[in-house]
Simulated scan of single mutants.
Amino acid sequence: MRDTTITEVTEAERDTRRAMWRGFRGKCPNCGSGPLLRGYLKVRDHCPVCREDLSHQRADDGPAYLTILIVGHLMAPLLMFVFETWRPEPLVLFTTFSVGTIALSLYLLPRLKGGMVGLQWAKRMHGFGDED
């Protein structure tokens, strides 16, 4: 029978998928119940529920790049499909897709930031590890 070391147990506890999903939902990647964000994009210094230190996060421009990538890959084919299928007036097409693009971007940005913080926490990046 193999003995499990403490590092293996704590590594198993930090499930990447679960941490990213919790972050995507705007919750603490550690406990899953405390709020991750203070405001629209500002990450809290620590979780008010489990006291996990979140000040180490370095999401920076990653969520913005991912938002642009996802929104662009969704809206460009949809724009072509709508244009080729129904041929709407240019002003209607522009207005509809501008509003849709902005709304989708504003919806995804804080969620992708939370997911990225969850990924950093799960992978022990940027000071999230136990070795201090």
Rank of each mutant, 00 (worst) to 15 (best):
D3T: 08
T5Q: 00
T10L: 05
E11D: 15
A12R: 12
A12I: 05
E13D: 00
E13H: 05
D15H: 14
T16N: 07
R17T: 14
R18T: 15
A19V: 06
M20W: 07
R22P: 00
F24S: 07
R25I: 14
G26Q: 13
G26H: 11
P29K: 08
P35E: 01
P35W: 05
P35D: 12
R38Q: 15
R38E: 09
R38V: 00
G39R: 10
G39W: 01
Y40W: 14
V43A: 10
R44P: 05
C47W: 02
R51Y: 04
R51L: 08
E52W: 05
D53T: 06
L54R: 03
L54A: 10
S55E: 11
H56Q: 09
Q57R: 01
R58H: 05
A64Q: 00
A64V: 13
L66W: 04
I68P: 00
L69G: 04
G72P: 12
M75G: 07
M75R: 08
A76R: 00
P77T: 02
L78M: 09
L79D: 06
M80P: 07
F81V: 14
V82Y: 00
F83R: 03
E84Y: 04
E84D: 00
W86N: 03
R87A: 13
R87M: 08
R87S: 14
P90I: 04
L91V: 12
L91E: 08
V92C: 00
L93K: 02
T95K: 10
T95R: 09
T96C: 04
F97L: 15
F97G: 04
F97R: 06
V99I: 09
G100C: 04
I102V: 01
S105F: 05
L106H: 01
P110K: 01
L112V: 05
K113T: 10
G114W: 00
G115L: 09
G115A: 15
M116F: 14
G118S: 07
G118F: 12
L119S: 01
Q120E: 06
Q120P: 10
A122Q: 08
H126I: 12
G127L: 07
D130C: 12
